[in-house]
């Protein structure tokens, strides 16, 4: 059984490359039972979304300034 540290490391990697089937399975089984790692998974996806929006936000703010 992998620890939360290992699972979150895999979740993080999964955002930047394609994971193997066994890695994805390990994540899936773990987050079924572990709400904190499930939260980490959702939240790191949310952070990605926020980061993408951030540059738009920045542009808008800079537009207003000038």
């Amino acid at each position: 059984m992998r620890s939360c540290r290992d699972i979150t490391a895999l979740v993080s990697q999964g955002l930047d490359k394609k994971l193997s089937v066994s890695e994805r399975l390990a994540i899936g089984l773990h987050v079924m039972m572990c709400s904190r790692c499930r939260n980490f998974q959702n939240q790191s996806q949310f952070i990605r979304k926020a980061a993408h929006r951030y540059t738009e936000q920045l542009q808008n703010r800079l537009d207003k300034k000038s």
């Binding site: 620890s3 939360c4 540290r5 290992d6 904190r36 980490f40 939240q43």
Partner: peptide, 23 residues
Amino acid sequence: AFFMSNGHWNGGPSTWNDPEAAL
């Protein structure tokens, strides 16, 4: 500091209320 020595969360993520609204 995020994890204890056995790899379990030290504290760790709670559930966020309506993150979409924050955006």
